[in-house]
Simulated scan of single mutants.
Amino acid sequence: MSTRTEQLLLLRGETLGSISAQSSTEEIFQNQTLRPILKLQNDLFVHVFINYAVKQKNVFFGLSIEKKLSYIEHVIQKDIKFRNSLKGMIIGLFTLEEYDTYIKNSSNLNKRMMNLLIERLKDNVQLLTI
């Protein structure tokens, strides 16, 4: 029987991005943990964002592309409840070791996490329709 850690790492796949001897701990965490989780959860994040936009009276869907990009960034930065929900979807796929690393520097890692998620949603803006 495999452990939770083994199953999570197998599910997420390989490191995304380069890691070198000069890479910071945060950069290593980003490329080994955050990017693979965000890739794995991409479809879920798209659906969650669509659901959020629908609950916000569908304003998002009538915006121009430029305003949609701005809306995505604004919502994730300003709606703390929504942002915390998104963070939970990511943190829930951490191994125990990754969680220990995360809690040591959660503020900076949260910024990286949300910036990566914002960029991912912006890249998927065409999928954000009802």
Rank of each mutant, 00 (worst) to 15 (best):
V59K: 09
R112Q: 15
L69N: 09
S85F: 15
S107I: 14
L16W: 01
S64A: 03
L96I: 09
L34H: 06
I76D: 05
N115K: 10
V59W: 07
V75Y: 08
D43V: 03
Q56F: 13
Q126R: 14
S85E: 15
T3V: 01
G92L: 04
Q56P: 07
A21G: 07
H74A: 12
Y52E: 04
N84Y: 15
L121R: 04
G62P: 04
V48F: 07
V48L: 08
F49Q: 00
G62Q: 02
Y102H: 00
F29M: 04
Q56G: 14
S18R: 15
D79R: 07
T25H: 08
I90H: 12
L117C: 10
F82V: 08
I130R: 14
F94N: 00
K67V: 06
D79A: 04
I72A: 01
K111I: 15
G62V: 03
G62D: 04
R120C: 13
L93R: 11
F29G: 02
N58L: 10
L63M: 07
K81I: 08
R83E: 14
S18V: 14
D123K: 13
V54W: 05
S64E: 04
N124A: 09
Q32K: 05
E14V: 03
S24M: 03
K57V: 11
S85C: 15
Q7K: 10
G92D: 03
Y71A: 03
S85W: 15
K122R: 13
V75A: 10
S20M: 03
L109Q: 12
S2Q: 14
V59R: 07
I37L: 05
V125H: 06
G88E: 15
I37Y: 06
F82K: 05
T101A: 12
L34E: 01
T33F: 07
H74K: 08
L16I: 06
L9E: 06
D79T: 07
G17N: 00
S107W: 13
V75H: 07
E26I: 14
H47T: 09
Q7Y: 11
Y102R: 00
L93K: 13
A53K: 01
K67S: 10
K78I: 11
L93E: 11
L121M: 14
N124F: 02
G88W: 09
K55E: 10
R83P: 06
N115W: 07
Y71D: 05
Q32P: 02
R12E: 05
K122S: 05
T33N: 03
K68E: 02
V75C: 14
I37A: 05
L93Y: 15
P36V: 03
Q41C: 01
S20Q: 06
V54T: 05
S18K: 14
I118F: 08
F94T: 00
F82G: 08
Q32N: 07
K39H: 06
